[in-house]
Amino acid sequence: MSALTEYTITALLLIGGAFTLVGAIGLARLPDFYTRLHGPTKATTLGVGAIILASVVYFSFQGEGIGITEILITAFLFLTAPISANIMAKAAMHLGVDVMDGTRGSPWEQ
């Protein structure tokens, strides 16, 4: 494995870990449900995406070929993340979850 590959894998791993952690900090720190929705659904998806990319690079340089399963996991995560965010937002609006002070506009229920 060349030095460049090692640097790439190291960078991807650290970026992935950092985004996952930032998403979780957002989940723990932000004040209401709707703002919390932003932290994990996206930052985490990108974080896991970077970690999966690191895995693809690592195993392809072990001489095991490009991993199809990794690509399927990434595609699946990116397809499902907006759907689960949307359906959770709908459930929260239905239950009338509190919004933080200073939010402009309001959720509607139909």
Binding site: G16, T20, G23, A24, L27, F33, R36, L37, P40, T41, T44, T45, G47, V48, I51, I73, L77, S84, M88, A91, A92, L95, V97, D98
Partner: peptide, 19 residues
């Protein structure tokens, strides 16, 4: 504090488990 928050936490937990 609300049920949707817990669902969101579980959702994030499984993604972290994948990682």
């Amino acid at each position: 504090p609300d049920a949707p928050d817990r669902v969101l936490a579980l959702d994030t937990l499984y993604i972290n488990a994948i990682a």
